[in-house]
Design a protein around this nucleic acid. Structure first.
Length: 302
DNA sequence: CGAAGCCCCTGTTCGC
DNA sequence: TGCGAACAGGGGCTTC
């Protein structure tokens, strides 16, 4: 799925366009992507009609549009979700699931999702436990200190200015698991998926199966710096796109895939030491490592 | 509480 | 060419 940088690219595109616009029409074309809206699609439509969008906010891979009704349109892109801003006369996409029309008729918001792991719902907002802004919003302005209940269990992400890095480091070191599993745990730190986990581990020269309790504080700090750095670089290049499944609100691909050191580069040389990158099965997925830079620890855990 | 496995979907690619 | 298996960037839920 799109990970943090890709979702942030989408958030920025939405913030620029939909903020201040009022919903005039909503069409749900498939029930599955609205399954998390338990009251049903008719209720979802009713709550959106006439509402004005006030912002676009993101925490980790979750994205929501606060409305002037006090609720928010919550979205998760899952593995293949897209938020597109299209001219209303553009042909419907093959996997178009939800359409939101605005008063001005210039563009409409389309939720497109092939695999339908993602979805949208209309949710209430509640105060953040710490009273701090919930995540990344606006045009450089902090978001309001409220977030959807559905996002309350999601930790702050590496690009969140209010992330407590010292506390996160301590929590990681208290875990009893492999470091990559910890990185992928959205309740510990959010926004990191398979691609950026592998890239950050490579940059920090750590193997994915390093037991968390064997990492010292500087090692964890180095890893978190690497996560931040790789995400910022990806953001600067519009995110990572392997195919047409991840694109921004205008349908354009990012090009960070050209900068990936190990992810998806099985059999190719490590850009740092030349060793051949390997792919290992990991949690029903894959992990890519450089055997030279990231030797497997004697005591491995995953 | 934390850790780990299962499952939800569709489409493409790969190997036989 | 045909077909089944493997695989694809996630996360909620259940169980232990």
């Amino acid at each position: 799925m799109p990970e943090l940088p890709e979702v942030e690219v989408v958030r920025r595109g939405l913030a620029r366009w939909v903020t201040g616009r009022r919903v005039e029409g909503v069409e749900v074309l498939h029930p599955r992507p609205v399954r998390r809206h338990l009251a049903g699609s008719a209720d979802l439509v009713a709550r959106l009609l006439g509402a004005r969008v006030d912002d676009a906010v993101r925490r980790g891979k979750y994205l929501w549009l606060p409305l002037d009704t006090g609720e928010a349109l919550l979205a998760h892109l899952g593995m293949s979700g897209q938020m597109l801003l299209q001219p209303p006369d553009a042909d419907d996409e093959r996997h178009l699931r939800v359409r939101v029309r605005f008063g001005d008729r210039e563009r409409e918001l389309r939720f497109v999702d092939q695999r339908m792991f993602g979805g949208v719902s209309v949710v209430g907002l509640e105060p953040t436990p710490d009273g701090l802004p919930a995540g990344t919003g606006g045009e450089g302005t902090p978001s309001e200190p409220v977030l959807p209940h559905e996002v309350a269990h999601i930790a702050r992400d590496p690009l969140d200015p209010y992330l407590d890095a010292a506390a996160l480091t301590a929590r990681i070191r208290l875990r009893r698991t492999g470091i990559k599993r910890a990185l992928l745990d959205q309740g510990l730190v959010s926004g990191v998926g398979n691609i950026y986990a592998d890239e950050a581990l490579w940059r920090a020269r750590l193997h994915y199966a390093r037991p968390t309790e064997t990492l010292n504080r500087p090692e964890v700090a180095r890893l978190l710096d690497a996560v931040r750095a790789v995400m910022l670089e990806a953001l600067g290049q519009g995110g990572t796109s392997f195919d047409a499944l991840y694109i921004d609100v205008n349908g354009d691909s990012g090009y960070f895939d050209r900068s990936l050191a190990v992810y998806g580069r099985n059999g190719q040389p490590c850009p740092r030491c030349g060793s051949i990158v390997r792919r290992d099965p990991f949690m029903n997925r894959s992990s890519y490592t450089c055997p030279g830079c990231q030797p497997r620890p004697r005591r491995a855990r995953w």
